[in-house]
Amino acid sequence: MMNLTLLPDLLLAGMLIGLAWAALSSDDLRRGVVLFIAFGLLLAIVWARLLAPDLALAEAAIGAGLSGALLLVALRDGSGGDKRAAKRSRLNRWLIDLFVLVMTCLIGWVLWLTIYAEPVERLAQLANAMLDRSGVSNPVTAVLLNYRAYDTLLELVVVLAAVLGVLVVGRERRGYREAGPVFYGLVHWLVPLLIVTAGYLLWVGAHAPGGAFQAGATLAAAGIVLRLAGYDAAGLPDGRLLRWLLVAGTGVFLLLGLGMNVSGGRFLQYPEAWSGSLILVIEVAATASIAAALVLAYRGGRTDGWLFMDNKDKSREVSS
């Protein structure tokens, strides 16, 4: 039976599929990227609709915002061209389409069974019931930094590995020319505003939507704005300080976790009275690392400061 209240949901879902299709089938890369960004923004609305405001914030900042920025500069790098679609035989394409259709139906069947036909009890109750003991009142933060903190630790390590990769393979992207007066003025209030917003998101994450990832992404946006305005360093320090910034999240997280281990608890088992403050400390460090990593990913390449360290390294070797 068709229910009118479902109409907005059906509309949103249809638009998502339509945008994805358009982004994927576009031969013009720039158009594809712009459609992808629009897709990300629409997805943020869907997250909000599904009562996931933490995700809506993160998607707008990371999924659409920073991914979009990265993809757009990739276009500027001249990754474009290559109009030729894959030269697959008609049979091959037909087989791929058949495979896609069958798998979609199978996945859809399972989803229909597990969500609609025989709904399954999952972790919602348990996770919400344990909230009192987690040190925060935002359940998503409780999962991220307490129940499943180990995931988040490893995820910070993933970010670290990726940003090292960016530093290893590339040289720094050439900077932009100095901004015009209007943009220059804009930068002067936009950057402080972004920094304050990041601080707010970080603080509020304990009891309301927000947290380290959203704050880190917002802070990174400040760096990117600086970069666009012609500040080549994008607000990042050089050399050793940058290294400290990049490992802060992983390092603090790991050391606190091991501290619990040594002092009689399990790894990452915070004492209940302290968990709120410990989570905040970890989040501050994680925000700094994520922001630094994301700005570096945008700026690209080895930084001068980084090279400087290595050069000093080499000169020492030669002299010794």
């Binding site: 599904l50 009562l51 996931a52 933490d54 995700l55 993160a58 998607e59 990371i62 999924g63 920073l66 991914s67 990265l70 993809l71 999952r122 972790l123 919602a124 996770a127 919400n128 359940p139 998503v140 409780a142 999962v143 991220l144 129940y147 499943r148 995931d151 988040t152 995820e155 993933v158 970010v159 590995a161 990726a162 940003v163 960016v166 947290g211 990832f213 994520i290 990593a293 994301l294 990913a297």
Partner: peptide, 21 residues
């Protein structure tokens, strides 16, 4: 809502942008 999948997706988002970069 069940906060666990939300947290998983946040983790996944950050992993995805790392790989993209």
């Amino acid at each position: 809502v069940d906060p666990v999948p939300h947290a998983l997706v946040l983790t996944g988002l950050v992993v995805a942008i790392s790989a993209t970069a």
